[in-house]
Computed example of a mutant assay.
Amino acid sequence: MTAASPPPPAPPVEPPPVRPALRRSRTDKYAGGVAGGLAQYSGVDPLLWRVGFVALTLAGGTGIAIYLLLWLLMPAGPRHTDGAPAAPPGPRSPVAGITVAGLLIVVGLMVLVTRYTPLDLGPRGFLAGALLVVGLGLVASAFVRNRAPRGGLIALGSVLTLALLFTSSVSAWHDGEGPRGGVGDRSYEPSTVAQIRPEYALGAGNLELDLSEIDVDDIRQTVDIAIDHGAGDLEITVPEDADVRVVLDQGIGDVDVFGQSDGGFFPAEDEDESDNRPEFRLTIDHQVGNVEVSRA
């Protein structure tokens, strides 16, 4: 009886491809090397990353915030000396490419909806849609082995989450029938007391409120106006003969309230005729930007 021959040796297992660390590129860069670093890490063409940042910037202004956050969070790549081999690029990933393409498509559709329908998605809507696409890409990457850059998608999702939290903290959103915040410049010029809103809100952008056309003689009691402004310059103009009380909560920026740097009671030029009852009471909550309150 002959002995059984030993089994053939198992083929050697090739180690997985080495993925470079997520760092800003020192060679492929136009501003800070963020797009080049993301391309080296994920295997997606840097042009797609740059187009994505531009699309988010045009959509809701969030592309710049995301780029700056990545610039701060991603360390710079190493400087390669002569003769030193560069780190091998990451494997090409169909999941990452499809995710970035889906991100651009979704952002483009939301831009069309915002421009051609009454629906105003705002920056939070754009960020939430982008985060949803990245989340779907992560789900798809769970079913693809050795070619799905989960780390890159997780990093992108984390930055989108931080940008969403930042936007939520500086945007003024109100429910009900009151005015709604958003992004973009706003200008209001009521000509009668009835047209004055009790509240004006804006998340990001310049806000101008011109009350100079209001006839002070028509005001029987103090008109209370609350202004909730996230980021941008705020300019308020009141009638020349109006007594005004300003209550100001200012974050970052310069303040010019009738030539002063804080609030208080500001009677009309003829103080002898003032009865200390203001025609307007302005309650201003302003986060970032300059505030100016002046007379017509």
Results as ranks from 00 to 15, higher is better:
22 L>Q: 03
195 Q>M: 07
225 I>V: 15
11 P>K: 10
170 V>P: 00
64 I>N: 07
94 P>L: 15
276 N>D: 15
37 G>K: 05
96 A>E: 06
102 G>V: 00
232 G>E: 02
215 D>Y: 00
130 A>F: 02
211 L>Q: 04
128 A>S: 10
132 L>Y: 06
295 R>V: 09
153 L>S: 05
275 D>A: 13
134 V>M: 00
9 P>G: 11
153 L>D: 03
241 D>F: 10
200 Y>W: 03
42 S>L: 07
121 L>S: 08
123 P>V: 12
70 L>K: 02
205 G>I: 09
212 S>I: 06
99 T>V: 03
238 V>W: 14
48 L>I: 03
86 A>G: 09
71 W>D: 10
61 G>N: 04
46 P>Q: 09
176 G>P: 02
137 G>S: 01
167 T>C: 13
204 A>Y: 02
22 L>R: 05
170 V>I: 10
145 R>N: 07
248 L>R: 04
124 R>G: 02
129 G>D: 07
124 R>Y: 03
254 D>E: 07
52 G>P: 01
250 Q>F: 03
30 Y>K: 07
283 T>I: 11
40 Q>R: 12
67 Y>N: 02
17 P>A: 13
64 I>Q: 11
37 G>A: 11
264 G>I: 04
255 V>K: 08
211 L>H: 05
276 N>I: 04
132 L>S: 13
210 D>C: 14
160 L>S: 01
64 I>P: 01
161 T>G: 10
25 S>Q: 06
